[in-house]
Computed example of a mutant assay.
Amino acid sequence: MIGIIEIALITFLALLPISNPFSSVPLFLSLTKGHTREWSNKQALMASIFMAGILLTFLWSGAIIIEFFGISIPAIRVAGGLIIMKVGFGMLNPKETEELSDEIKEESKTKSDISFTPLAMPSLAGPGSISVVISMAAGSDNLPGYIAISLGVLMVVLVAYLSMRGAPFISKILGVTGLDALTRIMGFILICVAFQFVLDGIGGYIESKDFLEPIIKMIKSITTS
């Protein structure tokens, strides 16, 4: 049980900064402006369900994807780390322009449903979040591990849901400056997580047969000649 809780917490701490539900608060408020509170709450619930569905699908199918394409676990960790690192630097030094264009926002305002796009995808469950769950899946080889990772994902989904439900209150308390500061802090944590992923990937490759066997063969050829 301790192992499951520990893995769930690690997943939660790794996924929360890159999903960063708090940074989606301004987007949620702008897209739900002019709509009823009941409609906004329904969109928050559906976006959370879609977010969970996207991430859990990639988590449980991660092994199939890795095996189908013949990708090694160290490669997954390094690639995932680089993607996460890019997102982290973007959060640490945000651009002046919004991630979503004004055209997309205007179109979203006229849609009857905004829960899947742009809320769930790409705001809450984008490429970075998907990279995290696939990288976590690559490091687990048993059912309890997958269950633990799933619990961590669901914990982040719960935070995302509560953030959207409480968006007006969060925006009022933190303000634009507070949300920007929180995003930068999340970005720094994300960069640290990304570096750890890359180091684990490189270390895993060095310890693997693909790296050691050629060296051993070369040493044996030198000693026998």
Rank of each mutant, 00 (worst) to 15 (best):
G145S: 14
G53R: 03
N41H: 14
L199M: 08
T36V: 05
V132M: 05
G187W: 06
L154K: 06
E207A: 15
S131P: 00
L45Y: 13
M91Q: 10
F197H: 00
L199R: 05
I202M: 03
E6V: 13
G81P: 10
F211M: 12
V198L: 05
C192L: 06
M51R: 04
M186R: 03
Y161C: 12
I134V: 14
V156K: 01
P144V: 01
F28T: 02
G90F: 00
I5N: 04
E99A: 15
I134G: 06
G175V: 11
G80R: 02
I219H: 12
E38Q: 11
G166L: 11
L190N: 14
P214E: 04
G3T: 07
T183K: 10
I5R: 02
L151V: 15
V176E: 15
K95P: 01
T117A: 12
P214V: 02
G145N: 14
V133L: 03
F116N: 06
Q43D: 07
I49G: 01
I215K: 12
M155K: 01
K209S: 15
A44W: 03
K105L: 10
R77G: 03
A14I: 09
S115D: 03
I189F: 15
M136T: 07
I5P: 01
V87C: 11
T224R: 12
L179E: 03
E98I: 03
F12E: 09
K111Y: 11
I170Q: 00
V78P: 02
Y146P: 06
I173D: 08
I71K: 07
M51C: 14
I66G: 08
Y146H: 10
V157P: 00
I191S: 09
Y205C: 06
P74H: 09
S24M: 13
F211K: 12
E6N: 12
A79R: 05
I147Y: 09
D113E: 10
T11V: 06
H35L: 08
G128E: 06
G175K: 13
F12M: 11
P118W: 07
G62H: 04
F69D: 01
L27K: 08
F22V: 11
P214M: 03
I216D: 15
S48L: 00
G204K: 04
L59M: 04
G34S: 00
A194Y: 03
V153D: 04
A14Y: 11
K86R: 13
S163N: 07
F22H: 04
W60I: 05
K95V: 07
L158P: 08
F50C: 07
I147S: 09
F68L: 12
L212W: 07
F116V: 05
V78C: 02
S221G: 13
I71L: 12
K172L: 12
K95L: 08
F169L: 13
L45I: 15
I84Y: 00
P122S: 06
M186F: 10
T57G: 15
Y146A: 01
R37V: 06
H35E: 10
G62D: 03
R184K: 15
Q196Y: 13
I7G: 05
A47M: 01
L31W: 04
K109T: 08
S19D: 12
N142V: 04
G70C: 05
F116E: 06
K172P: 08
D113I: 10
I54F: 08
M164L: 15
A167W: 01
A125R: 04
N93R: 15
R165A: 11
I2Y: 12
I189T: 13
D210H: 13
M164S: 12
L154C: 10
